Amino acid sequence: MSVQVAARWVVLDIEGTLTATSQVHVVLYDYARPRLGLWIDAHSDDPVVAGAVAQVKADAGLGEPAGTAEVVAVLHGWMDADRKATPLKTLQGLIWSDGYARGELTTDYFADVVPALRSWRDRGLGLAVFSSGSVAGQIASFSNTTSGDLRGLFAHHFDTVNAGPKRERDSYEKIADGLGATAAEIVFFSDVPAELDAATAAGWRTVGVARAGEPFADADFGTHPVVSTFDDVELEVIA
């Protein structure tokens, strides 16, 4: 059954919505894991890296003398628990950006994704991303894909730093302000019901994405309309 929705902006989750969860939890995590310590030591003078390391120490209760090994142990633990910790996402994003730039990483999307994104963009809809992955990591992931460089499709990128947690209403209100749009002009696609609930609380339109084989394929999406593929979405452009 198709879902019909009117919008001016389409905001998209990535993991489980545009890409398979394994793209992040296997491909990207496995790439970043052995490089975290090396990256921290090689970029200790980078204020972004230094700030992330300091935040890890503070969040984990590590003393200031704690070395790279202790910091990396915390980061690995967070990765194992799939914790959406901001300093972890920052460091991963830097490492992934480098990997994409080197051509060592390539993003693969569900077959329906790229045709739908291009069609929506061509019809005048604005596209934006809201992901727990850092903005740097998001942009990098779109730079080298099996469908080419897709960075030009997206007008805005939001993460837990510039917007806030994905399961809180305030984050979606902040994004709407950033887009210069009213809540009723935005539709959010995600595979996580709690994220859709937060978006709805902010007045957004929502569509759940329940893809076969993904962690939330059989989740209870409540009153949110649900599709298993973007082929089942009919988007009307609000002038």
Rank of each mutant, 00 (worst) to 15 (best):
E234P: 10
G222H: 15
S143M: 04
A128C: 03
D220V: 01
E185W: 11
L150I: 12
E70M: 02
V129Y: 12
V72R: 00
W9G: 07
E173V: 15
T223M: 14
R8V: 00
V11Y: 05
D218L: 14
A212G: 15
K174P: 01
N144M: 06
V10P: 02
N162A: 09
H157V: 05
G16L: 03
G99D: 10
A194N: 11
R118N: 09
F154Q: 03
S190D: 06
A176Y: 02
T223P: 13
L75T: 08
A181L: 02
S132K: 04
T145V: 08
R83Q: 14
A194E: 11
E104I: 14
T182G: 15
D197M: 07
S141P: 04
A69I: 05
F130L: 12
L28F: 09
D41Y: 14
A194K: 12
K89D: 08
N144P: 02
A239M: 03
D30W: 05
A199I: 08
G178Q: 06
G203V: 11
K84I: 05
V11E: 10
L235F: 03
A212D: 15
A111E: 08
V24K: 03
G152S: 12
T145F: 06
T86I: 15
A239N: 12
D232I: 14
I186M: 07
D59Y: 12
D177F: 15
P215C: 04
K84V: 02
K84L: 09
A54C: 13
G180E: 08
G152T: 12
D191R: 06
F154T: 09
S147T: 09
D112A: 00
H43G: 12
R118D: 02
V49I: 10
N144W: 08
D191Y: 11
R83D: 06
R169Q: 15
T229G: 00
D231Q: 00
E168H: 13
I40N: 03
E214D: 05
D46R: 01
P34M: 12
A54L: 14
F189R: 11
A73T: 14
D220Q: 11
V10K: 00
Q138W: 01
P47W: 03
R205W: 02
V207L: 00
T160V: 04
T17D: 06
A136D: 13
D45N: 06
G93K: 11
S44H: 10
Y31D: 04
L105Y: 00
T145E: 00
L235V: 01
D231P: 03
V209E: 07
R118E: 04
F189C: 01
E195T: 11
L36Q: 05
W39H: 02
I95G: 09
D191T: 11
A111F: 04
A210K: 07
R8Q: 13
